[in-house]
Design a protein around this nucleic acid. Structure first.
Length: 122
DNA sequence: ACCATGACGTTTC
DNA sequence: CGAAACGCCATGG
């Protein structure tokens, strides 16, 4: 699954896809959330939402840090919580930013939704 | 080139 | 509401 550390280090100059994803996620404002699909769409590959999620897998330990807790699936579900340490951390982070989470789902998701393609101006 | 693997998304049952 | 079937596509073996 993960590249060998050796290869990782050797290629760490590119990471193009991961880099872009991380970049966008870092731009998500405090207290706002977005979705994998929105990010993928913003990057021009709206059918590659999976790749976005995959990129998040590589967001552990990168610098600067990536606020992965602000990235949810299309339903506002904390689909990535299983990858946090501990899993409850994701929800706690969101709640600490003023969001309400019930049953692993962000309330008023559409209200806090931040779409890079619409709110971000290059 | 083929196959498996996903922090996804949409549709259908 | 949950589960499953597809579609999608980058990466790795």
């Amino acid at each position: 699954m993960q590249k060998s550390l050796n290869k990782m280090v050797k290629e760490n100059k590119d990471d193009s896809f991961f880099e872009m994803v991380h970049e966008v996620v870092r731009l998500v404002p405090y207290g706002r959330v977005t979705s994998y699909g929105a990010i993928a769409a913003y990057l021009g590959a709206k059918r590659s939402a999976r790749m976005v999620g995959w990129a998040m897998n590589a967001s552990h330990g990168v610098n600067p840090p990536v606020p992965a807790h602000r990235v949810l699936n299309r339903n506002g579900l904390l689909s990535g919580m299983a990858h946090f340490n501990p899993p409850e951390l994701m929800q706690e982070l969101l709640e600490s930013e003023g969001l309400k989470v019930v049953e692993n789902q962000v309330q008023d998701f559409d209200q806090f939704f931040w779409d890079p393609a619409k709110e971000l101006i290059l």
